[in-house]
């Protein structure tokens, strides 16, 4: 038997923080690729500390639903899971190329994977997010894309992940312009319009869940709205640009695919689950688009 654990931050205060985790876990459950699928949290339950014992499987794939390699993925999660043989060198990563490490805990084999945020498949999720917010499956020509991250505050890898995906999207040549922008360092998201010549700019925050940063700070800082509580238009006119603000990339249904890719890289036997998730989430995205245009930005 094999199990998947999706390890996320969660929140003591915000009931919405776990929603993307639940949604992606359910998408994976519905593929039947794993005998058991569990959500686990730092701030909610089951806690990282308690999750392994809830599994009957001997092979456990743990995928952190985090954006960057750093404090949580390198210290907190391995410690709380009791991965006593863990050392960050096991990932042999320069900040964006973690793969997996196979360890033991509580009598089980734990395949501890790098975070979703630095997997190559994440690049496609950012692009998918741009497609869904513009309702244009071919979005790119004549359009700029800003990938927004937190910045270095506590962890330099946080900026690396943002730049990594921005570079990969830029190299594909699909968008006229691609920039990595940050909340607390240059180039700052506040000045988003200074960095683009294109009239239309899609802004995708590289965050796991919507919350204070993506729903309050960034919209106000970019000038989409005076007061986040009043919402904003999608697209919103800012200094003669149209800003298509996507909200947290982590809420995109295709994130479930990245989780599966992580586990598959580490050796999970998931057969064609990835293709099925791609198809299922594309259908979800279509349905969402039809349903949500009117309320975008709420």
């Amino acid at each position: 038997m094999q199990a998947l654990v999706i390890a996320a931050h969660g929140s003591h205060l915000n009931p919405g923080a776990a929603r993307p985790t639940y949604a992606h876990a359910d998408t994976v459950r519905d593929t039947g690729a794993f005998d058991e699928v569990r959500e686990a949290f730092w701030k909610e339950e089951p806690h990282f500390r308690e999750v392994i014992r809830t599994l009957e499987s001997d092979e456990v794939y743990v995928v952190p639903l985090f954006i960057s390699e750093g404090y949580f993925t390198e210290q907190v999660i391995p410690r709380e899971l009791r991965l006593s043989e863990w050392d960050p060198d096991r990932w042999d990563s320069e900040g964006t190329d973690a793969d997996w490490a196979t360890l033991e805990a509580e009598g089980k084999t734990i395949h501890y994977c790098g975070p979703v945020g630095t997997h190559d498949a994440m690049t496609d999720v950012i692009v998918r997010r741009a497609e869904s917010v513009t309702d244009d499956p071919d979005v790119g020509k004549g359009v700029g894309l800003a990938v927004v991250g937190h910045g270095t505050e506590r962890n330099e890898n946080s900026a690396k992940a943002v730049e990594y995906h921005a570079d990969r999207i830029r190299n594909r040549g699909r968008f006229d312009e691609v920039e990595a922008l940050f909340m607390d360092e240059e180039p700052e998201v506040d000045d988003v319009t200074d960095y683009f010549e294109s009239d239309d700019v899609v802004v995708v925050p590289l965050f796991v869940a919507d919350g204070y940063h993506t729903q309050e700070d960034i919209p106000e800082d970019m000038g989409l709205t005076e007061d986040y509580r009043e919402g904003w238009e999608v697209p919103a006119e800012v200094e003669e640009h149209r800003i298509w603000y996507a909200g947290a990339v982590g809420t995109e249904a295709l994130m479930a695919e990245v989780i599966l890719e992580r586990a598959a890289d580490a050796g999970a036997d998931i057969e064609n689950a990835i293709d099925r998730v791609k198809r299922a989430t594309a259908e979800m995205a279509d349905a969402d688009d039809r349903g949500s245009r009117a309320e975008a930005g709420d």
Partner: peptide
């Protein structure tokens, strides 16, 4: 029961 009260059954068993 695991969704209502995560890990309670497993810790009770232990």
């Amino acid at each position: 029961v695991g969704f209502f009260y995560p890990a309670t059954v497993e810790n009770w068993h232990r």
